[in-house]
C-alpha cells in the first residue's frame, strides 16, 4: 500500500522503535496515510510510540485506533481527533476542535490545551483529560467515559449523560447535566445553572474516593473537598404529565 510506504519513509530505521517514536509530519503526509498506518494490524509491533507533527488543525487525526500504542500530536487538531478510540493513548499538545474523542470506547485521550464543543460526545469508556477548558456540550450523551477538565466547561455539558463521570475543576456554563440519566458530575467551581432533572447530591466518602481516583488518573492537582456532586433526580425517567414542561 502506497500509504504505508510514505509513512515508513519517515520512520528512521536506525533507531529502535521500542525506544524512539515513529515520526509522521502531516505537512508531508496526508491524514489518510497516517490513519492507514495507525490501523495496520501490526502497528504496535512496528512502533509502540508515534509522534505526529504539523497537524495544522486537520480533521479526523488518529481516529478509529484499536491498538496499544501511544500517539503524541504536536499542535492543534481539528474535528474528531481520536474519535472512537480504543486502547490507544492519544495526546494533543495543543487545542482540539469539535468532538475530540467522540464515542471513545477505551484508552486515554489527553488535550493539553482547550477543547471545542462536544468533547467526548457519546463516549462509552476510557479517560478523556482536557487540561484547559472545554466548550459547550462537553460529555453530551456520555455513555461510560470518564472526563476530567482542568478548566471550565460550556453550556449543556453532560446533556443526557447516561453513564460515566465528568469532573470539572473550574466553572460550568448553563444547564449542566440537563436530562441526565446515570452519569455523575463533580464540579469545583461555580455552576452557572443546572439543567432539567439535574440536582446537587451529597458528597459521601465513596464519592470523595472516586473523585480522588479520577483526579489522580488525570494527573490533576486539585483538592477533593472543594468539589460538589451532581446527578439525576430521575424525575424524567418515565413520562408523567406533571413534568411535561421539563421535556
Amino acid at each position: 500500500m502506497a500509504a504505508l510506504s510514505t509513512v515508513d519513509s519517515t520512520v528512521d530505521s536506525t533507531v529502535d522503535p521500542a525506544v524512539e517514536p515513529a515520526l509522521v509530519d502531516l505537512s508531508l503526509t496526508t491524514v489518510r496515510e497516517l490513519n492507514t498506518a495507525l490501523h495496520a494490524p501490526d502497528v504496535a509491533d512496528k512502533a509502540a510510540r508515534w509522534r505526529v507533527t504539523s497537524p495544522g488543525g486537520k480533521h479526523s487525526i488518529a481516529v478509529g485506533l484499536d491498538a496499544d500504542i501511544d500517539v503524541v500530536i504536536e499542535g492543534h487538531v481539528g474535528y474528531y481527533c481520536a474519535g472512537m478510540n480504543k486502547t490507544a493513548t492519544v495526546t494533543v499538545e495543543g487545542n482540539a476542535g469539535v468532538g475530540v474523542a467522540e464515542n471513545m470506547m477505551s484508552g486515554t485521550v489527553r488535550v493539553r490545551g482547550n477543547a471545542s464543543q462536544s468533547a467526548g460526545a457519546t463516549a462509552h469508556g476510557g479517560l478523556l483529560v482536557i487540561e484547559g477548558s472545554a466548550a459547550a456540550r462537553c460529555g453530551i450523551s456520555m455513555k461510560g467515559v470518564d472526563i476530567v477538565v482542568g478548566g471550565d466547561v460550556g453550556h449543556m455539558s453532560a446533556f443526557m449523560g447516561q453513564a460515566g463521570r465528568l469532573v470539572v475543576c473550574g466553572d460550568t456554563g448553563d444547564a449542566l447535566g440537563d436530562s441526565l440519566y446515570e452519569a455523575r458530575i463533580y464540579v469545583a467551581g461555580t455552576v452557572k445553572s443546572l439543567g432539567a432533572d439535574c440536582v446537587e447530591k451529597e458528597m459521601r466518602p465513596e464519592h470523595l474516593a472516586e473523585l480522588a481516583g479520577l483526579l489522580a488518573a488525570a494527573g490533576m492537582d486539585a483538592d477533593v473537598v472543594s468539589f460538589r456532586r451532581f446527578g439525576s433526580a430521575r424525575r424524567l425517567y418515565n413520562f408523567h404529565v406533571d413534568n411535561a414542561s421539563a421535556y
Binding site: G57, K58, H76, G78, Y79, N95, G97, S116, A135, A136
Partner: peptide
C-alpha cells in the same frame, strides 16, 4: 475553527475561547 487562527503571529499567548 482553531486551524484558521493557528498561523497568526503570537497566537501561542492568545486568550482563546468559544
Amino acid at each position: 475553527e482553531y486551524r484558521a487562527l493557528a498561523g497568526l503571529p503570537g497566537v501561542e499567548s492568545a486568550r482563546i475561547f468559544e
